[in-house]
Amino acid sequence: MPTNVRNSIEKINLDHLLMENLELASHSSIQCGGNAQWAAYPTNFEELRILINHAKDNNLPLSILGGATNTLISDKGVEGLVILTGHLARRHVQGEMFCVRSGCPLDKAISQAIEDGLEGLEMLGGIPGTVGGAIYGNSGANGVQIGDLLYYVDYMTLDGKLHRMQIHQDEFSYRHSPFTGRDDLIIYEAGFRLKPTTQTSEVRKRKDTVKKHRKHKGLYDYPSLGSVFKNPEGKKAAALIDACNLKGHTIGGASVSPSHANIIINREGKATSEDVRALIEYIRAVVQSEFHITLQEEIHYLGRW
């Protein structure tokens, strides 16, 4: 009897949550890609657990998609269940601890922390994507990496259990965290150890300044995935690409940004993901030929490639 009740509850929740054949291009910051076989927006821990169980019980591949700001989605779509984290966005404060769920946009979370009288995250202002995505890839800017400020991360494993990782900063490095490359867990919530402040207007000005600097560099001019390649040790990927005179180079609807060589843009909204990937491979080949340096992607690929 308890099993029947449980199955009934989960069926009701699943009927409400699951969406079939959901187009994903509008969920991507570069606005291209195919459809998800199944997709869902969980709003809390219980819904997330139910969705994980559903994928496991039905042998569905499971994918996690946050802001899709550094994820290139295949034109052929994504098989299985795609969990969209955008509705996992609640936050609360415990003293000096700013706690926020993984689907909250990072820039919004920074503004909320400032509203709550806490400083420390503002130098990351303007970085696109979600809190979970930023933690996954240890996003950084202006001499600050998100791992520098983390105290804990709550994550769910595929058996539906919630765990807490106390953060050790030596586990974080350039564009790498303990979660990078892990497909057996889902980041659920993070706690940041910040500093109380009464000078919130000054903190907000610092955030606005770094965000305006990103805008001035053309980072928001067209749909893009942000920086495509990691910086090789001692080098800047953008400088290497620029030195190869690749700004403006176009394949299909995808172009190297005229203002930042490490960004590929969908200028007219006509690029396919295959165009973007072909341009990535072309850039890599040219830089390899010119400088004998193999550029590695900072972005991730999702779906049927």
Rank of each mutant, 00 (worst) to 15 (best):
Y152I: 05
D159H: 12
S26H: 10
N266C: 11
P258W: 05
V5P: 00
H292V: 02
D275W: 06
A278K: 10
Y301Q: 06
Q37C: 01
L302Y: 07
V5C: 12
A239D: 09
L240G: 04
T198D: 11
E115Y: 03
Q112D: 14
S26E: 11
T197P: 05
I64R: 04
P2I: 12
G191W: 13
S173T: 13
A40R: 01
D221Q: 07
A285K: 15
K235H: 15
I187A: 00
P178D: 12
G129E: 06
Y220D: 15
F192L: 05
I167D: 06
N142H: 15
G303V: 01
R175K: 15
K11E: 14
I12T: 09
L162S: 09
G117C: 06
L162C: 11
E122Q: 15
G86Y: 03
T250S: 14
L149V: 02
R304G: 00
H213A: 15
P178W: 14
I73V: 13
R91I: 08
E281W: 04
E122K: 12
K76R: 10
R49Q: 15
Q169T: 14
P42E: 09
A285T: 09
I299H: 01
S8I: 09
E171L: 13
R206T: 10
H176N: 07
N138H: 12
D57S: 09
H87T: 07
R204V: 02
T200Q: 14
A113S: 15
D183T: 07
G86R: 15
